[in-house]
Design a protein around this nucleic acid. Structure first.
Lengths: 116, 116
DNA sequence: CTAAACCCTCACATCGACGTGAGAGTCAAA
DNA sequence: TTTGACTCTCACGTCGATGTGAGGGTTTAG
C-alpha cells in the first residue's frame, strides 16, 4: 500500500511516516516512480512505534527494538541480548513515570472531589 | 530563603525557578537589592509544580490550580469551581497516558522476559 | 576591605517529533 | 488526454521547559 493508505489505517500523519523512515524505523520499498510501498505488517509496526513513542522512548532506541519483534509481539534472536539492559532502564523509567502520573492524578482527584 | 537554597532544597535548577516566577507560578518577594526571597511554603509549592509538570500539565493550567491548594494539599474556595472541568479533562488525559505507559511496559517486559 | 560566592536581567540556543508550504512528478478514472 | 488526487523532496517553523553565556551588582566570611 502507499503512504496515504497506511496513514489512514494507522492513524498517523504522512509526515510522521516519512519521519519514521528517515529515522530507520520503517523501510518501505520504492516503486520506480519513487513512491513508497508499504507491507501489511507495517500497520502493526506503526502501532508499536506509537506505543513506544508515547512511552517516551526515542526513535534511536525504537529502531533497535523493532527488529526484535516478530508479527505477534514476540522475540527474535539476533542482537537482542545486548538490548536487554537498555530496555530494562527504559522499563524502570516508565515505571517511575507511571508513579508520577498516579501521584498527579490523585492530586487532581483530591481537588475535584473536595470542590463544593 | 534565596533562590540558591530553594533550588538545592527542591532539587530544581535556579533557571527553572526563575521561569516558574515568569509564568506566574511563584511570587517571591524582592529585597531592595532585587534578590528574590522565598517562603518556606514555596518548597512544597515547587514539589507540586514538578508533579503537575511531570503529568503533562502546562504552566498556564498549573498557575490556576496552585492557588486552590493550601499547605496540606487540600482545597480552597475562590475560583476553583470553574476549574473542575479543566482538571477533569487533565485527569482523563493522565489516565489515558498511564494506560499507554502500561502497554509499553508490558511490551518491553515481554521482550526482556523472553530473551534467552 | 577584599575576595569568594551569590544573585540579577537579558536574550539566544536546545531538543524531538512532527507541521507546513513550495515546486514538481505520478497515478487512475472518465 | 485531461484532470483531480496522490506522492516526492527539500527545508524552515513550532512548542515548552530549560540550558547557557554575557555583563554587572550584592552579600558575607575573614
Amino acid at each position: 500500500m502507499r503512504i496515504g493508505e497506511l496513514a489512514r489505517r494507522s492513524g498517523v500523519s504522512i509526515r510522521a511516516l516519512r519521519y519514521y523512515e528517515e529515522q530507520g524505523l520503517l523501510r518501505p520499498h520504492r516503486r520506480s516512480s519513487g513512491y513508497r510501498e508499504y507491507a501489511e505488517t507495517d500497520v502493526r509496526a506503526v502501532a508499536r512505534i506509537r506505543t513506544l513513542l508515547a512511552a517516551g522512548l526515542g526513535t534511536a532506541v525504537i529502531a533497535e527494538v523493532l527488529p526484535c519483534m516478530v508479527d505477534s509481539g514476540e522475540i527474535l534472536a539476533p542482537g537482542c541480548p545486548e538490548l536487554v539492559d537498555v530496555l530494562a532502564v527504559e522499563r524502570d523509567r516508565i515505571t517511575g513515570a507511571i508513579d508520577e502520573l498516579q501521584a498527579a492524578r490523585a492530586m487532581l482527584n483530591g481537588i475535584i472531589a473536595a470542590t463544593p
